[in-house]
Design a protein around this nucleic acid. Structure first.
Lengths: 343, 343
DNA sequence: AAGCCTTGCTAATTCGGATTATCAAGGCGA
DNA sequence: TCGCCTTGATAATCCGAATTAGCAAGGCTT
C-alpha cells in the first residue's frame, strides 16, 4: 500500500491507537513521573505496546523546536573534506572528531552545501544552514577573519581546529604548539653545532605558518634567513640554501621537504651530511613519506578530539574551561639531522 | 552584552523591526509574488534592509517542519567512518558522496550517534535520528537484512553503496560488478593456460564476497577449489595452495594477497612464475600496496557518487530510474599473473 | 451611491512534540 | 453532605517559518 513514501507516524497516531491523548504519549515517551504527570502502569504499558508495534520514532526536528540542543555538531571545512588526492590532511582530524562525537552521542553534519567560491568555501552565504547544528567545528589552513568575527558577533558556538588570531574577540581553538615544537628542533640543531639555519616555506598567511616561523626566529635569532618556496622549483630553493651555506633547513611543509631531498639527491648533495633537513609537521599535499625525517608530527587526531570536547563544553555552558588550548607536537628523532660537516 | 548565547533572531523580531507582520517577512524572504501575496517595492526593501542589518537567517529546522525536503543526506556506516588505520576503505566512497552532495547543495549528516553494539553500528536503536535527513546512504561490508527490510517497510528512502540481497523487497543500491570482473580475470588466466585455479577468501557472508566467488565459479567451473583464509596464517594458506598444485590464486581481499606474496617470498616461491596471484579488489584492511597486482579495482569513488545521485532521484520521485545499478570494475594488467610454469 | 475589483497587508493555522494549566472523578474527613 | 485532596488524564499553548484565507482601504464602474 505504501505507494508513496509511507506516511510518517506521529504521536497523534499513537494516541489514537492507544486511546489516550497526545500529551499522554509524550509523557510516557519522556518517562515523566512528577506529580503533575501521573501515568498508571496499565496506561503506560498500553501506550508502550502501541509504540513497540508501530515502531514509532519521535521526529528529532520537532523536538529541537522546543529544546535547545539538537545533538548535531557541524563540521565546516574550508576545502573539500575528502580530497581525492591520497595525501589526506583532514582525515586524522575527522577521525578524532568522529571518535568524540560518538562518545557524546552526537551526529556530525558536514556542511557540503556551502558553495565553493574563489577556491574556498564560505560559511556565510545566502542560505546558510549553520543553525541545524548546535555548534560547529572549523577546519582549514586559513579561515578568513571576517567569518570568524561574524561567528563571534552572532554568538554562534564554535571551536576552531588549529590556532587562529583574534577576530573581534578571542577565537576558541584547539591548536598545535608549533612555536614550541619548532623552537625545540632548532635548539637541537644548535646543540649539534649548526650555526647557519634557514626557514623554508611561506612563514606567513596561515597562523600555522606564522607560528612555525615565530618558533624558528625565537631560537635561531631574529635575522636567521627565511627562504620562501612559492612556485619556485625545488632545485632553485636548494641552490639558494647552498649558496647561503646553510647547514640546516627547517621546512614548513613535509611535501616541500620531500621535494628538497629529491633535488639534493640529484645534485649529489648528501642528507644529512651536507645539509640537514627538518620537517616541521605533516604533508598538507600528497607526498611519498618513506623518508624518516627529523622534525615533528602534528597531533591531528588528538586536536580533532579535544576540539570536539571543547565544543561540547562550550555548548553545555561549562564555565571555567580554557577556550584556547595548545597541544604539544610529537617530536621525531628521524635521520635527516646530524652534526654539520665542517665541524 | 551577549552573556549567554545570543538569542536567536526570529521572523517575529524582523517583523517588529520593519513594522510589518511575520507573514510579510516570510513572503519577502521567499520572494513570493503571486496575486495572493503583493508586496510593494517600498515594503520589500524595508524588510530586506532589516534582514541585512541583523544578518537574520531562517531556521532550517522550522522550515523542514512544513516542507518535505531538508537538503540533508544521511550517511550511515556500519563501521567507523574515519578508521584510524591508514588502510582506509571508506574514504573514496565518501569522496564521491561529498562531490555529489556539494553539487546538489546538500549537507551530509554522519550518523555517529548510532551506538556500536557487538562491534557494529545499528540503524535502529532507541533514539534513532534517521528522519533528520531526507534520505540515507548505507555503507558497510555487511548490513543486516533485518535493518534493510525495516527500512523498506517503513518506506524510508535510502540507497546502499554496494549490492545487497533482497530484504523483504528489492534493496536500492549502486554496487560494483564483482561477478563480471572476477569472471573476466579468471578468463584471462584460463587463456594463459592455467588449469588449476583456486578462490582464496571467505566467499560467503557479505554480498561482495559471494559475488566474487560466483564470478569465479561461473568461469572456473563449479568444482574449482575454494580456500578459506579465516584466522589461518598466510604460510598455511600458501602451503594449502601448493599442496593442491594450484597455479593461479584469486584472492578476495588485497590485504590477504599481500600476506600471501610475503609468505611466498619467504618460502622462495616465485610470483608469478610458480604461482600467479590475482587481487579481486582493494584492501579492506591496511596493507602496503607497492605490489603491482593483476586484478581489478573497485570504483569506490564512482559508486559513492552514483549512489548519491540515485538517492537524489529517489527523493525527488523521479520515476523510471533503475534502482539497482552495477558499475564495472577497473581491470588492472599488473605483474602477478603470467603463464603457468609447467606449460 | 451601491457594487465590485484591486492593492496591501495580516490573522489564523499548520507541522510534531514538550510543557503548563486545568479539569473530572473518586475517596475521605468533619 | 459539603468541602478538599489525590489520581488520571487532557486541552491549550509554544517553538519558528510557510501558507491559506480573508479583511480594510481606495478606486472605478454604472
Amino acid at each position: 500500500m505504501p505507494d508513496k513514501v509511507a506516511a510518517r507516524l506521529t504521536q497523534r497516531d499513537i494516541a489514537r491507537l492507544a486511546k489516550v491523548s497526545q500529551t499522554t504519549v509524550s509523557l510516557v515517551l519522556n518517562n515523566r513521573v512528577e506529580d503533575s504527570a501521573r501515568i498508571p502502569a496499565a496506561t503506560r504499558e498500553r501506550v508502550l505496546k502501541v509504540i513497540q508495534e508501530t515502531g514509532y520514532q519521535a521526529d528529532p526536528l520537532a523536538r529541537r523546536m522546543l529544546k535547545q540542543r539538537n545533538q548535531i555538531l557541524g563540521v565546516f571545512t574550508y576545502e573539500s573534506v575528502f580530497p581525492s588526492s591520497s595525501g589526506d590532511f583532514y582525515h586524522p582530524f575527522l577521525a578524532g572528531i568522529e571518535d568524540c562525537a560518538e562518545q557524546l552521542g552526537c551526529d556530525l553534519l558536514l556542511f557540503t552545501s556551502a558553495p565553493v567560491t574563489q577556491g574556498r568555501r564560505r560559511i556565510f552565504h545566502e542560505n546558510n544552514r549553520l543553525r541545524i547544528a548546535d555548534g560547529c567545528l572549523l577546519l582549514g589552513r586559513r579561515i578568513p577573519g571576517s567569518e570568524l568575527s561574524r561567528l563571534i558577533a552572532e554568538g554562534y558556538p564554535f571551536v576552531s581546529v588549529g590556532r587562529r588570531d583574534d577576530a573581534g574577540g578571542p577565537v576558541p581553538y584547539v591548536g598545535a604548539d608549533y612555536v614550541e615544537a619548532t623552537s625545540t628542533v632548532v635548539e637541537r640543531a644548535l646543540a649539534l653545532g649548526h650555526r647557519r639555519l634557514a626557514f623554508v616555506g611561506p612563514g606567513i598567511g596561515a597562523e600555522s605558518s606564522a607560528d612555525r616561523l615565530r618558533g624558528f626566529r625565537r631560537t635561531a635569532g631574529k635575522r636567521a634567513p627565511h627562504v620562501t618556496t612559492g612556485d619556485r622549483p625545488p632545485a632553485e630553493v636548494l641552490a639558494d640554501l647552498i649558496g647561503r651555506r646553510i647547514t640546516a633547513a627547517f621546512v614548513e611543509d613535509r611535501a616541500d621537504a620531500v621535494a628538497l631531498v629529491a633535488a639534493a639527491a640529484e645534485r649529489g648533495i648528501d642528507i644529512p651530511a651536507d645539509l640537514s633537513v627538518i620537517a616541521l609537521g605533516d604533508p598538507t599535499r600528497p607526498a611519498s613519506t618513506d623518508i624518516d625525517f627529523t622534525g615533528f608530527h602534528v597531533p591531528r587526531r588528538e586536536m580533532g578530539l579535544r576540539a570536539t570536547e571543547l565544543l561540547e563544553a562550550v555548548l553545555s555552558g561549562r564555565a571555567g574551561t580554557e577556550t584556547q588550548q595548545l597541544i604539544p607536537c610529537e617530536l621525531v628523532e628521524g635521520s635527516t639531522l646530524s652534526e654539520p660537516k665542517g665541524l
